[in-house]
Design a protein around this nucleic acid. Structure first.
Lengths: 119, 119
DNA sequence: GATAGTAGTATCCCAAAGGATACCGGTATC
DNA sequence: GATACCGGTATCCTTTGGGATACTACTATC
């Protein structure tokens, strides 16, 4: 293979990766989206439970992030019309498709912290 | 296993994941860090080459992000004392350890785009 | 000697992200 | 009837991330 072709191929691959990563980061933007998804991984949670599980998130932000997660079909808002009304947020199957990303980030982050601390 | 214990375990797991993901996202913060790492994946690049490869990044931002990537040992700044001086940025082995994360983000991003467009 | 490229730095500015605080209507409890 | 929880909303304010633009010192080329 000619150098010229290799160059073209790796450039194409680079652009391909750039766009994929960009799209993924776009829907995961914001400080709290992944924390919310991780917290919901344990099971459905109510608004207040989520707030306590994550810690330090204000209701305004939690509400906003949940709406965006709902729009992207990562999270389902379940309303149980009992009295009083019970509202639960639960991870959808599509939300669970983020597991690979979360696993990689988590594993890398943990080894990185260990690496930093051992210096 | 008692429900109580399951709950405790999954909470611990949740906190564990939260901290790992947090640490990873912390060093990858900023709009251009992953794009730079991806661009350098093809091979070493000079400042101007990087700027052109990424597109739309201003020299100020590129300089800042490169410094942070260098501090985290993702990127090595090579100075060749020829005349004129040649400066190249190259990915370190540790920088390559981000490949798993990039792969996951890229693959997920691409399937997500396909999913969106097919609706 | 003008022009262009290389590798950045300096300054200014703006929009967006996010935090603090207060509030709302409803229900249940004391 | 006061208080407290639930599920949020509204308003204000600060921070910071990042873009635009200009500039520098050096070298090479026309």
């Amino acid at each position: 293979m000619l150098a010229e072709h290799r160059q073209t191929m790796s450039q194409a691959e680079c652009i391909h990766k750039l766009s994929g990563v960009h799209d993924a980061l776009y829907v995961l933007s914001g400080k709290w989206k992944l924390p919310i998804v991780i917290a919901l991984h344990e099971g459905p949670k109510r608004f207040g439970e989520l707030q306590r599980a994550i810690g330090d998130i204000t209701p305004k932000l939690l509400s906003k992030e949940l709406k965006e997660l709902e729009m992207n079909e990562f999270v389902k808002r379940q309303v149980y019309t009992s009295t009083p009304v019970l509202i639960e947020y639960e991870l959808t199957d599509y939300g669970s498709s983020l597991d690979g990303i979360i696993q990689e980030l988590c594993a890398w982050g943990i080894q990185h912290r260990a690496r930093i601390q051992s210096r």
